[in-house]
Structure formats: structure tokens, C-alpha cells
Deep mutational scan, measured.
Amino acid sequence: HHGSGALAALHADGPHAGLPVTRSDARVLIFNDWEERKRSEPWLRLDMSDKAIFRRYPHLR
């Protein structure tokens, strides 16, 4: 199991509170979210491209 239990660094406060600090933090969040959702949506594709990251977390651009 590759990303399970990996912890992402999140901004503690300010405008980005609760959001990932780096792209690799964002990838951890996206992976964990996908892993949760694919139980009920097995067709869901995992997209951890930069484009997917920016779409979801525009502050990382």
C-alpha cells in the first residue's frame, strides 16, 4: 500500500489554513481522498498530475 498513512504538511493558519504546503503534500491528500472514494466509486481514476493539483489547490501554482 503505497501512500496510506502518509501525512501531508498543511498550512496551520492564514489564508491557506488546512491546505497542503507543497505539491508532494497535495499528492498525499489527493491519493488518500482517491483511496477513500474508490470504495464507493471503483471506476474513479487517480490523477496526481500537476494540472490536477493546480485545479484542486490553485494556491500551489
Rank of each mutant, 00 (worst) to 15 (best):
Arg56Cys: 06
Arg45Thr: 10
Asp13Leu: 07
Ala17Ile: 11
Pro58Tyr: 15
Arg61Val: 08
Ala12Thr: 12
Arg55Tyr: 10
Leu60Asp: 00
Ser24His: 14
Arg45Phe: 07
Val21Tyr: 05
Pro58His: 02
Arg27Met: 11
His2Trp: 13
Gly18Asn: 05
Arg61Ser: 09
Ala17Gln: 10
Phe31Gly: 01
Gly18Ala: 04
Val28Gly: 04
Lys38Asn: 08
Ala12Ser: 12
Phe31Arg: 08
Thr22Gln: 05
Thr22Ile: 10
Leu7Gly: 11
Thr22Trp: 13
Ala9Thr: 13
Pro20Asn: 14
Leu7Gln: 13
His2Ile: 14
Ala17Asn: 06
Leu44Ser: 11
Leu19Asn: 03
Pro58Leu: 02
Asp33Asn: 06
Lys51Arg: 10
Leu10Gln: 14
His1Asn: 11
Phe54Glu: 07
Trp34Val: 01
Leu46Ile: 04
Arg61Pro: 05
Asp50Gln: 05
Ser4Tyr: 11
Arg37Thr: 03
Arg55Leu: 14
Ala12Tyr: 07
Arg56Thr: 15
Ser40Met: 09
Arg27Asp: 01
Asp47Cys: 06
Leu7His: 10
Arg23Met: 15
Gly3Asp: 10
Ala17His: 06
Asn32Pro: 00
Ile30Arg: 15
Met48Thr: 10
His1Ala: 10
Gly14Lys: 03
Ser40Pro: 02
Pro15Val: 08
Asp25Val: 15
Pro20Ser: 01
Arg39Lys: 14
Ser40Gly: 10
Ala26Val: 01
Pro20Thr: 01
Asn32Thr: 09
Asp25Gly: 05
Gly3Glu: 09
Ser49Gly: 04
Gly5Ile: 12
Phe54Leu: 10
Arg61Thr: 07
Ile30Gln: 01
Ala12Arg: 10
Gly5Tyr: 09
Arg61Asn: 08
Leu10Pro: 07
Met48Ile: 12
Phe54Ala: 06
Gly14Tyr: 04
Ala17Trp: 05
Arg23His: 07
Lys51Cys: 15
Arg55Val: 09
Val21Thr: 05
Leu44Cys: 06
Leu60Lys: 00
Asn32Lys: 13
Lys38Cys: 12
Leu29Phe: 04
Val21Glu: 06
Ala52Thr: 15
Asp13Thr: 10
Glu41Asn: 08
Pro20Gln: 01
Arg55Ala: 13
Leu7Asp: 08
Trp43Cys: 11
Lys38Pro: 14
Thr22Glu: 04
Glu35Lys: 15
Lys38Glu: 02
Gly3Gln: 15
Ala52Ile: 06
Asp25Ala: 06
Leu60Val: 00
Arg45Cys: 14
Leu7Met: 12
Leu10Arg: 06
Ala9Val: 13
Arg61Gln: 09
Ala26Ile: 01
Pro42Met: 10
Ala8Arg: 04
Asp25Ile: 03
Ser4Thr: 13
Trp34Asn: 01
His59Trp: 03
Glu35Asp: 15
Asp47Pro: 01
Glu36Met: 12
Pro15Lys: 06
Tyr57Cys: 01
Ala8Leu: 07
Pro58Gln: 02
Leu7Ser: 14
Gly18Val: 03
Thr22His: 06
Pro42Val: 04
His11Ala: 04
Glu41Val: 06
Trp43Asp: 12
Asp25Asn: 02
His16Thr: 05
Ala6Pro: 10
Ile30Cys: 02
Trp43Phe: 09
Ile30Val: 05
Glu35Cys: 15
Pro42Thr: 05
Glu36Leu: 13
Pro58Gly: 02
